[in-house]
Design a protein around this nucleic acid. Structure first.
Lengths: 189, 189
DNA sequence: CTTCATTAAACGAACATTCATTTAAGAAAG
DNA sequence: CTTTCTTAAATGAATGTTCGTTTAATGAAG
């Protein structure tokens, strides 16, 4: 029996993500993706049942990835200010260095038909648990999970999205953002 | 001479926005939009040169609208804390009450092919000028424009987007968010 | 080792459908 | 009448998906 070529599957995923950065979610057709991946359109249907299933699976996978990346850079002994700094800085780094994936995930997460299938919550359990500990003993300000996201990730994602439009001073912006977010969650700073 | 039917144009815009909320940006075809607006596809091409032009014009118009709405509720005599509260609350209200428009704008603003044509900056001059005054005399914390957006609008938009997923406690979340954002921009609170 | 079925991956071509857009003719208003 | 709006119908191109075939990897038989 012939075995599935994992490299080919990887190429399909990357092509999807690359094309959606270039042409937007409505410009990424199956045939274009296939061409970009050097693969026959029919091959895609060996790995996925439909275009929709493909998008939502790739979406889910790459959603997870950014948080997994983040978790690697975090350890529970960190001081509160450092924790926030690392989360913000590393998120930003990841988003900028993986702009294809980032743009893809951003687009998918605004698309009602896609994000009702992908629960962001389950991608982030590990990170949440850690932050909850810091909140419980008062090292960082307690708040609802929604607001935790709203005040940490929404700002970083916004800044990362605007990265291209910014002048050369993007590092200064990031420094400032770190301080601002810290001032929300940590007293006397 | 027969006059262009402005009501028809309005119906087209609303149908566009409604359909994109339901089916996402890639599910909104010209014919579906036409049907939704009770209009022939050809009629759309009387008002717009192409689908792309149409999307970007409607996008631009509705982008402006949310800020115009906001400006109505703001006056320069406001105390700093109140200013931020009003911006956050009224933004949220607008987004939730106009979820079709909101979802449409959110989707468009993540689509690379669309947002390179629409400069968000020019929609917000009036609001920016006002905030800059507050920043200049220290009533609210000075920061780069990017971070101003990142720490005010990105969080509200995020919360508004998650509004549907939230339990009944969405008002409490909003209250908390207002406080958190105030604590970034205003000392001793 | 060499054959040779067997199995599933992979493909290019073709499918029906839908797409964005245009045409040609009718309807409405001046 | 003239002018402009409006549309149903038609356009070719492109869409997502399937078909029939070929290719490559495996294990059994000689």
């Amino acid at each position: 029996m012939r075995t599935k070529d994992q490299d080919k599957l990887q190429r399909i995923k990357e092509a999807t993500v690359r094309l959606i950065l270039r042409e937007g979610i409505d410009g990424a057709s199956v045939s274009k993706i296939a061409k970009e991946a050097n693969v026959s359109p029919a091959t895609i249907y060996i790995y996925y049942d439909s275009k929709e299933e493909m998008l939502s699976k790739v979406f889910k996978e790459y959603s997870r990835q950014s948080y997994q990346y983040l978790v690697q850079h975090i350890h529970p002994q960190m001081e509160a200010g450092e924790l926030i700094e690392v989360i913000v800085r590393e998120s930003y780094t990841y988003f900028v260095e993986n702009e294809e994936i980032f743009s893809f995930v951003e687009q998918c997460s605004r698309c009602p038909t896609l994000c009702e299938q992908v629960c962001e919550r389950e991608c982030t359990n590990e990170l949440m648990t850690l932050i909850h500990e810091y909140q419980r003993d008062g090292r960082i300000r307690a708040c609802s999970d929604w607001n935790l996201w709203a005040m940490i990730f929404a700002p970083v994602r916004f800044l990362a999205m605007k990265n291209k439009d910014m002048a050369c001073s993007c590092n200064a912006n990031l420094d400032e953002l770190v301080q601002m977010i810290q001032s929300v969650f940590i007293r006397h700073s």
